[in-house]
Design a protein around this nucleic acid. Structure first.
Length: 565
DNA sequence: TCTGGGGTCCTAGGACCC
DNA sequence: TCTGGGGTCCTAGGACCC
């Protein structure tokens, strides 16, 4: 809690949807909903136009379609969101060395640390300038909150939405918070809210009044103490820059529940390999493998196994995941499967190599039972070894021998080898022809029909390397995806079905474009990379036209029904 | 046509050790 | 040989956030 409102919280307005509107002129001013499009999809972001119909984040897509049947429904394009986000984060970096990103569209900035502001007036002008810069560089709007603590800065930006700025002057926070609902405070979700309500507390003032002891009794130590402090407006959490990830995981929800045990196993192995690819892309290895299973009735369980040393070997992770699956009853059907790795080690393969060639390869029972030494640089490779409390399992963990280099940088060497011994090959065991769940919905990919599973993969890794998911035979065109036609140029998929695909040909800087329909197997049509949103640096300038301002965009003439895929 | 995907943090019990 | 007690690691689950 500081005496000047020099903690800034930025929250981009309806980020994914706003990016889509900036990229697709015909959608400006119209309801746009981004999320999974399959039968089990949910809304990731709804534009403000769509919110007027009652559509909200995390709402099942089916419900959104009932509320706003004429909205444009689009699959997320994380590559684009990530690049826009990078631009925004760069702007924040100019204000202070202390920037704490919370997600692609949100961050805290410590203005004091950057010497950018020292009181309410300077903070406000920094915030206003930031908003202008963001608009200029990205064409999008963001809301800014300024206060003396993170909690209040975040509450302020929420109040500022959309497209605004709010400063909470230190000294006024208690009075401001008192009448607000408990859900305003970070860390209070539906469960805690209900818990508190049953105890007769619905406002922040109620919490402050209840006292710390009472809240601890009700909610447990950590939660109770922090909630009481927050209710009094006290929050000393510092803004912290880049933090290392603590786990990496991937999961898929299937369009229809999986019953076939062989298929379930095959999916688990596939997920394990995807997970390892992400792990490696981040240059890390991990010690605990976690399997997640959500059953037909939505009950969810996790099983984990801790190895004797960290690994990034796909074979090891795959086999551990498969072992964990063996102990899970899946009768009744499986809705979701996930594989994760935690207990991440900091060093990379390069370090290990250096270490191995330096002859410093560790020996002896590192990290075995007890605390001695912690997880040393012991890489589990080849032989999978649970390192449970007893540590009795006889299998040897293997440290990296110098000659393992081939397997190390040839990540795929290990991969291929793994497949030879029964790992997932190119097609699912049930012969359904595609790895993705094939359901009544016509065989869309996992994760709600983005077509390609990576469509909803927000990994920072090279998601294109995910194997492409090439469906032999028919091509699938996801709504919102970028395409290029040999004659008509750049466009995006507005919808597809019964052997036809409808494409709107327009670019971020063009006027709303025309729609044409093709056969799904039209050889002149191909998937393409996304176009950059706005000029800037190396990008093609939006010659002559207005800088992209999503909400207006010139009224989107001639877009009768244009928003509907 | 019920409920995504990627994370973080906390709690609680049991094993194990000193 | 009656039951202490603290610390760490592991596992499982739950709440929450975007």
């Amino acid at each position: 809690m500081r005496a000047a409102p020099t903690i800034l919280h930025l929250d981009m307005d309806a980020f994914f949807a706003a990016v889509e509107q900036a990229a697709k002129p015909s959608l400006r001013g119209k309801p746009v909903i981004v999320g999974g499009l399959g039968p089990r999809g949910v809304v990731a972001t709804a534009s403000y136009e769509a919110r007027r119909f009652g559509v909200r984040s995390a709402m099942p897509m089916a419900q959104a379609r009932r509320l706003a049947p004429n909205a444009a429904y689009l699959v997320p394009r994380f590559t684009v969101y990530r690049s826009v986000s990078l631009r925004v984060m760069e702007l924040l970096g100019r204000l202070s060395p202390l920037v704490e990103p919370l997600s692609l569209d949100e961050a805290f900035v410590d203005l004091e640390a950057g010497g950018a502001a020292y009181d309410g007036a300077t903070a406000r002008s920094v915030g206003e300038r930031l908003r202008r810069d963001i608009r200029e560089v990205t064409g999008l709007t963001g809301s800014v909150g300024l206060a003396g603590s993170k909690m209040l800065a975040k509450i302020a930006s929420e109040e500022a939405k959309p497209d605004g700025l709010v400063v909470i002057e230190p000294g006024t926070e208690r009075a401001l918070l008192a009448p607000m609902g408990v859900r305003t405070l970070p860390g209070v979700g539906p469960a805690t809210e209900e818990h508190l309500r049953r105890a007769g507390m619905t406002t922040v003032a109620d919490l402050a009044e209840a006292g710390e002891d009472e809240l601890v009794r009700l909610l447990g130590r950590a939660h109770g103490v922090s909630l009481h402090a927050m209710a009094l407006g006290r929050d000393d959490r510092p803004v912290v820059g880049e933090r290392d990830a603590k786990s990496v995981s991937v999961e898929d929800t299937f369009d229809v529940d999986l019953h076939d045990r062989v298929r379930v196993r095959w999916e688990v192995e596939r997920l394990a390999e995807r997970c390892v690819r992400r792990l490696r892309a981040a240059g890390r290895s991990g010690r605990t493998v976690v399997l997640k299973v959500r059953r037909y009735d939505f009950s969810t369980l996790t099983r984990s196994e801790t190895l004797r040393g960290p690994t990034d070997d796909p074979v090891v992770v795959r086999e551990a995941a498969a072992r964990l699956l063996d102990a899970v009853d899946t009768t009744g059907g499986v809705r979701l499967l996930g594989v994760g790795v935690s207990g991440l080690a900091d060093y990379t393969q390069e370090d290990l190599f250096a270490q191995a060639s330096a002859g410093a390869a560790p020996d002896g029972p590192a990290g075995s039972s007890g605390s001695a030494g912690g997880p040393g640089p012991v890489v589990v490779r080849g032989a999978a070894v649970p390192g449970g409390a007893g540590g009795s399992s006889g299998t040897e963990r293997v440290s990296v021998p110098p000659d393992a280099v081939g397997a190390v940088d040839g990540a795929d060497g290990a991969d291929v080898e793994g497949r030879a011994d029964g790992g997932p090959a190119g097609a699912p065991p049930d012969g359904s022809g595609r790895p993705g769940p094939s359901g009544p919905s016509g065989g869309r990919g996992p994760s709600g029909g983005s077509g390609r599973p990576s469509g909803s993969d927000r990994s920072e890794g090279p998601e294109a390397g995910e194997g492409g998911e090439g469906v032999p035979g028919e091509r699938h065109w996801a709504a919102g995806a970028d395409v290029r036609h040999a004659v008509h140029g750049a466009g995006w998929v507005q919808g597809s079905g019964v052997g036809r695909v409808t494409v709107r040909f327009e670019e971020p800087w063009s006027a709303p474009g025309r729609v044409r329909t093709f056969r799904t197997d039209d050889p002149q049509l191909e998937a393409s990379d996304p176009l950059p949103l706005v000029g800037g640096g190396s990008q093609p300038a939006p010659s002559g036209t207005e800088p992209t301002c999503p909400p207006e965009g010139g009224g989107a003439p001639g877009a009768g029904g244009g928003a509907r895929p």
